[in-house]
Every structure is written in structure tokens, then in C-alpha cells.
Design a binder for these strands. Structure first.
Lengths: 204, 204, 204, 204
DNA sequence: AATGAATGAGAATTCATTCAT
DNA sequence: TATGAATGAATTCTCATTCAT
């Protein structure tokens, strides 16, 4: 019971650190946000931050990313993909990315901001994405005739491109949200865009 | 001749600073690249860097950006736009962005990397883009019937979106270049993509 | 006890910084005394100096000055001033200045040295002196007939002049101390000097 | 003829350097005034400044001081001093100091400002003053009965004190000028003050 | 476990001084 | 002689990280 309480406090603190850190990055940019500043803003001692995140800033981002990737991407939707529901899958995938964007706008922007100034982080991220889609591509080529014809490497590249394209549109300079009346129209546009793009990418 | 040599040295030094700075950013990320490090790598004294760029890193990026924006965007292509050559204009515009990307891949990536960690710079950049397209939108609405019907603000937003979309694809996580056999195919894809997108954006 | 030790260490460090800084200024002059040099001499890390004095040298002097002004001037001697004890008051005031000079010779000289090379500091100092004597002048004019006749502004100016005169003699080029056999004779001289001067200043 | 013109240009430049340097010190304080800044303000190249003043700032002040000391103090007034005209001599001496102050207010303040932050300069100054009054004291003790009784060292000290007292009043925090209606009254006050002070100093 | 004072390497920036032209 | 570009040591200041309490 007491350990439960403790662990809730611990998680609360960790969440507080995430929240404060990413808020500060949004306000000031990554390299102007210091761990000491985070500690002061979050009213948590700098010692505690280093207890939970021994490597400091890098650790905060890496751990947040690991948690959020698990939440966002670690599902088995792709496995059941077949000829008939490619469009459904895409809609579903894009919707997930979009929902994640809406819910974690600040966090994700901060993450991207951080990744840009830290090559280690950037490469870790790329590797993670690559492995994720490599796994999915392999499964797809085993279970789906259409995909068997596409070389594995190409399939991975295409998936990554789609993933990046959607993210780029959602995050890049932030101007897109205001261009569509409703979220549904945006989702529709993005799905159509991906289908449109796939034709070029798969065949070329 | 002696004065010529002087001025050549000056520009050579400035170019050397740009080159070294952006190379280092590409290698190490923005916030790990210090002015002193640039000086040492470029074999130029730190004093010289601060002579030409009194505010340090920020100035290097800002000045490079100003120069490259002028080179890249400051032309009058849009003025001659009429009903018949929208597609030509788009092709031309995308080609320019693409050529700029090819020639200045390192510089531009570094610039984007830097912009992500510096909000002042980021806002300056956004403002510059906005003003550029505001000017173009106003000219277009005066000379072209089709555009007159679109509100100025919307037109600016759409242009910015297109600009960002292309840049996002060209720069975002770097995976696109390997997906197309030839540059022409990439350009074709991008043009088609923009035309495809415009339908959604203008009407919505 | 542990908290006591903490706070004692803190004040000890601050005092050590003051002591070292002013000693170095006395030896080398203000602008040749760097914060790093102070840190090294005081065997305190440069970070600690900036923790307690975030604006560096300027802060050290300003804070010391604020503390010493409070110690030296922030008393209510002037309030009880009446017709009969002007001479006593003067003796007392001069004695205070003199004691302060004796005890803090190094600090005060350093402060004056610093003030000469820093206009911001100088103006802050002048303002502080002015406000101090403005307050005293206002109180005096309310409670003392003789002073009521002297315009407030004039009274402030005269007080400041007296204050500066004494300080100038005590600090300016350091030659006075050796001219008098005993401190009492010096104090007597200074008091007589002020009384002598007041005749000129009040009437003119 | 051409050499004459040159030498006038040279002196003009030197005067321009003095003027600019001391004006900048008055505005910004000594240690914030850089030689490069002087060069830019005076529209004289930094190379030229170092031609005339090879040791930089220190040299500018030292040379100006040497010139101004010669102008101000290098006269034989004291030699003819006798019993009857001590008061006249004092008036004359004070008037000289006062005139110098009026004419070179900026220069002198700057000089004092500079001296405070540079111990070499300060010591040089003290030595110069000491030697000047040593010379005068020796002459006086040879020619004047009254002074013979005062030990040479003491006489020098008293002279220096008087000199410093007047200067302190004239320069110290600048508040005196506004306290007297006319210059004559100020001079009178200063003379009386010195006579008043001498009684204490000579006898003690 | 939690705290936050303390550390010091390293980044940004200045400025006296030199030297090629 | 005059110039001012170039230099780099020295300075100010920041911030990730440690460790005694």
C-alpha cells in the first residue's frame, strides 16, 4: 500500500518532469531549456530529476519517446491487412497519427525540436522507425500477395516515407490545421494524398 | 588588385565560416557546435567570426538565410502568372526549390536544424516567408481572375502550405531522394502532389 | 545543526567572495579583477559566485553596497536632532563615517574604485545617497525650526556635500590619515571643517 | 611647409584622440571604452592610435596627464612666496586648479576615472604629485623662514593634502558647483577652507 | 529517497594589439 | 605614414552533473 502510494508519487513526478520539460522546450526551444530550469519550474529538485533520468535531457526525451512509440505504434493492425482493406488500414493509421498529434501536440513538437539538435537522438529515432516498419514489412510480405512482389527494402522505405509525409504535414511549421474546416476533411485529404502518393512510389 | 585581393579574402572567409559552421551542425547538431569550434575548424580566429557575425551563431544563420532567401525566392516569376500556365509556374517553383535543395543540401538542413532550436530565428523565418507570399498573393490577385475570388489571407496560407509541403518532403528525415529513379520523376510527383492538394485547399 | 551549518557556509562563502574580490580590486584595480580570478583566489567555484551574484562583478558590489549602506546609514540619529545638538549630531555622524572607513577601508576603497569605472553603479549610488538624505531632510524640516527655513532641495544638496566632503577627505588619495597624531584630532578637524563649511553653504 | 602641415595634422589627430577618448570615458566609464571604439568614433584608424600611443589606453592617459600637469603645475609661483602673500598664493593656486577644472572638466574626470581602475597609472600619478611638491617644498624651506621650521616631509604631505582636498571637492561626485551662486564665492570658500585647514595641519 | 549547494568544463563574447597592404 | 582586417588571450557567463546532508 505504501509502496503503491510511493510508486504513484514517482509516476506523478516523472509525468510532471515530462510536462514541464516539453512545455519549456515549446516556449524557449530545446537548447535554451536547462535541466535546472525544469527542476525549478516543476518544483522538483534537480537531484530527483537525475535519479529518474540519469543522463539528463537526453534521457528524458529518449524515455518519453520509448513510451510514446509503444503507445502509438505498437499494435497489430498491419498484420490483418489484405487486398480489400488497404484504404481502411491507411485511414486507421492516419487517424492514429492524427489523434496522437492532437493529444500530444506539445510533446511531439518538443520531441522533434529536440531531435533536430541532437544527432544521437536523431539516429536512435531513425533506427527505431526503421526497425518498426521492417518488422511490419516482413509480416506483410509473408501474408499478403500484393506486397510479396515489392522488395522488402522498398516496402520499408515507402512505409517510412508515408509515416514521415504525414508527420511532416502535421508538424512542419504548423500551418495546416487552419486550412481545413473540420478534422474529417483533413483526414480525408491525408488519406487521399497517401493513396495518390503510393501509386508513384510502388510502381516507380 | 590589392583591394581585389582584400575583398576576395573577406568573402572567402565568410564563405569558409558558412561552410564550416553548417558542416559542423550537420555532424554534431546545432547546440553542440560552438563559435570557438567553428573558428578552430575553419582556421579563422574567433575575433574574425565576431567581426562579420557580431551576434555569433544566430547571425551566421540569419545572414545565410537572408542571402539564400534572396537567391531562391526573390524573383518575379509569379508576376507573369496567368490562367494558362499555373502548372508551368508550379513546375518552375518546385524545380527552384529542388535545385536549391540539391545545391545547398547541407546548408539547408543545418538551417532547419538551427531553426528548430531557436525560437527567435524560427519566428523571423516564419515572418519572412509570410511577407514574401503576402507580396506574391497581392500581385496575383490584382492580375489574375481566378485568384481574385480567393481571399488574400487564404491564398497566403495555401502558398505557405505548398512551400512547407515541398520543403517538408525534401528535408524531412531525408528518405525521399532514394525513392525515385530520376530527379524528373520526383519533380513530376511533387508537381502532381501540389496540384492534387490545391483542389482540396482552394475549395474547402 | 545541519541546517545551521548550511546557512553558515552560505554566508561564509558570500563573505569570502566579498573579501577576496575587494582585496583583489585593491591590489589590481577594478577592471583587471575577473570573476574567475576571484573564484580561484577564494577557492570557490565560478558557478557558486554566479549563484549568489548572478550579474557578476556588478552584483557583488551592488549587494555589498546595499548591505553596507544599511549598516552605515540606516539609523534614526537625525530624527532627534534639535537646535542644541547639531554639533553633537555632526560629531556622531562623522564618527560613524570614520569608524566605517577604519573597519572597511579596503571594501570602501574598492567600492569607490569600482564605482568610478561603472556608470550604472555610479548612478545607482548617487540615487541611493540622494534618497537617503531626502528622507532625512524631510524629517528634519518637520521637526526643527532652523531647518524649516532652508528649502528642501538645498538641504539635501548640503547634506550630500557634507557626506561627500568627509568621504572625499577620508578616501581621496589616502594621504590624510598620516597627518594627524590621533584619531580624535582628525575627528575634531573634520567636525570643525563641516561647521565651518555649513556657514558658507546655508547662507549663500 | 609640408612638414608643418603634417605636424599640424598630427597634433590635430592626437587632440582628436584625447577628446574622443575622454568623452567616451565620461559616457561609458573607463573600462567599457575600448581603443577600437575610440578609433571608430574619432574616425582615425586603430593603427594610427597605436602609432601615437604605442601602449594604448594607458599611454593616452599618461601622455595627456603629462601635458596637463606641465600646463597646470609647472610654474614658479611658489618660489616668490613670502610671509606676506601666503593668502595671495593660495588664492592664485586655487584659482589655477579651478580654472583647470572648468576648462578640462571632462578630461580631468576621465583621468580620475581612469586612475581609479589602473594602479600603475595611480602610482605614477602619486609619484608625480609627490615629486612636484617635494621640489616646491625644498625651494620654500630655503627661501622662507616660517617654512624652515616645518620638516620637509610634513610640508610635502600638507601640500599634497591641500591639493587633494581642493581636487576632491571639485571632482568628488560633482555636487559642489551648484551650491554657490558665483564662482568667486566658491573660490573664497575654498581659500578660507585651506587657511582654516592649514592651522590644524601645520601645528599638529 | 529527496534535496539543492557546489562544481568546473565549456560556450559566448570582447578588446588590446599586430601586421600585411 | 595610414589603414583596418585579423588575431587570440582573457573575460563573462551557462548548465549538465555530482555529492554531502
Amino acid at each position: 500500500m505504501s509502496s503503491k502510494k510511493f510508486s504513484r508519487n514517482k509516476q506523478e513526478k516523472i509525468d510532471m518532469i515530462y510536462k514541464t520539460f516539453f512545455n519549456l522546450i515549446l516556449k524557449q526551444g530545446y537548447h535554451k531549456t536547462s535541466t535546472n530550469h525544469v527542476a525549478k519550474s516543476a518544483k522538483i529538485s534537480i537531484g530527483t530529476i537525475y535519479k529518474y533520468f540519469p543522463k539528463g535531457k537526453e534521457d528524458i526525451i529518449r524515455k518519453y519517446f520509448e513510451e510514446s512509440m509503444e503507445t502509438m505504434l505498437d499494435r497489430d493492425d498491419l498484420i490483418n491487412l489484405n487486398n480489400d482493406n488497404i484504404r481502411d488500414f491507411l485511414n486507421h493509421f492516419i487517424l492514429e497519427l492524427f489523434k496522437n498529434h492532437e493529444e500530444n501536440k506539445g510533446y511531439n513538437l518538443a520531441f522533434r525540436s529536440a531531435i533536430q539538435s541532437d544527432n544521437t537522438l536523431h539516429n536512435g529515432h531513425k533506427e527505431k522507425i526503421f526497425n518498426f516498419f521492417k518488422d511490419r514489412a516482413q509480416k506483410l510480405r509473408k501474408t499478403n500477395k500484393n506486397f510479396k512482389e515489392i522488395p522488402e527494402e522498398r516496402l520499408i522505405e515507402v512505409f517510412i516515407f508515408i509515416y514521415n509525409l504525414i508527420n511532416a504535414i502535421l508538424y512542419h511549421h504548423l500551418s495546416i490545421m487552419e486550412l481545413f474546416d473540420t478534422d474529417d476533411k483533413l483526414i480525408e485529404y491525408l488519406s487521399d494524398l497517401v493513396v495518390f502518393s503510393l501509386k508513384y512510389l510502388i510502381k516507380s
